[in-house]
């Protein structure tokens, strides 16, 4: 038997403690708030995809930063992170959060800049959110299928702040892109995010980010190659290329 202390307050008939923290969403996504300037493509009606539904190698990427002598508790760091989430992203990438903030079941729009100047419009579902962590899950067409968990915990009188990605590239095109620079770009993305958060809560911009990159499953899931039909990068490019046609059609009516 493998064991650790068991909680004593659990009652079999009670609603689980996590019940309020999970999204109720299972069917297609729906964006409730589209701010001006946001491109809303490839989200409405899409299903979410976990790492099991992706095509590429499965990676677990963990990025950690330690805040020594932080004045905030782990819960306060998560509260700040939720409130200011888009502000910590690298330039050129936009997160259009729901009006109600990061809460279970909410859908956010993402307008991302990819290597080679490619724009990508997609979104995320807030899969889980409590006081100590929150998780975003990706829809069909996103670069990767999986989820990203943001959390903080106390350790040796310090606060460890963590981003953990569990993912597979959604389709063969994204898998090639990730292998040729995409993974590196993603690593830089989350390093920047954690350092920006640390700068916000502690004013220190030079805290190193520790990375742990584990290839959980090196195999490709060829049965999921069909995901390319939903590829948001190709669909966003197609939308932009056909913009003049839509403009001409609009003038005729």
């Amino acid at each position: 038997m493998t064991t650790s202390p068991i909680p004593t307050n659990g009652q079999p008939d009670e609603q689980p403690r996590d019940a309020a923290f999970w999204s109720g969403q299972v069917s297609g996504l729906k964006v409730s708030n589209v701010p001006s300037g946001a491109l809303n493509l490839n989200v409405d009606g899409k299903l979410v995809n976990g790492p099991l539904q992706g095509f590429g190698q499965m990676w677990q990427k963990t990025y950690r930063i330690t805040l020594n002598g932080a004045s905030l508790s782990a819960k306060e760091v998560i509260r700040v992170w939720k409130e200011h989430f888009p502000e910590f992203w690298p330039a050129g990438n936009r997160f259009f959060g729901p009006l109600t903030g990061i809460a279970p079941g909410e859908v956010a729009l993402l307008n991302l800049s990819m290597p080679g100047g490619i724009a990508l419009s997609t979104g995320v579902l807030v899969l889980y959110a409590d006081e100590e962590s929150f998780t975003l899950m990706t829809p069909q067409g996103h670069v990767f299928a999986g989820w990203i968990t943001f959390s903080a915990y106390e350790e040796n009188n310090s606060i460890v702040v963590q981003t953990q990605v569990l993912m597979r590239a959604s389709d063969p095109m994204y898998e090639v892109g990730l292998r040729f620079g995409g993974h590196t770009q993603e690593n830089r993305f989350w390093q920047h995010t954690l350092q920006s958060l640390a700068a916000h809560v502690q004013g220190d911009t030079a805290i190193p980010v520790r990375m742990e990159l584990i290839c959980v499953d090196p195999r490709l899931q060829w049965s999921q190659a069909k995901n390319i039909w939903h590829n948001a990068a190709m669909r966003t490019a197609m939308y932009k290329v056909t913009a003049p046609l839509r403009w001409i059609q609009g003038r005729k009516h």
């Binding site: 996590d18 923290f21 976990g50 409590d130 998780t135 968990t149 499953d217």
Partner: peptide, 22 residues
């Protein structure tokens, strides 16, 4: 006997599944 599971817990089940399948 499960009393609580968060998204990291679900992630653990995914990695266990991969290990089992391998």
């Amino acid at each position: 006997g499960l009393e609580y599971m968060n998204s990291s817990g679900i992630g653990l089940i995914v990695t266990l599944l991969i290990r089992v399948n391998r």
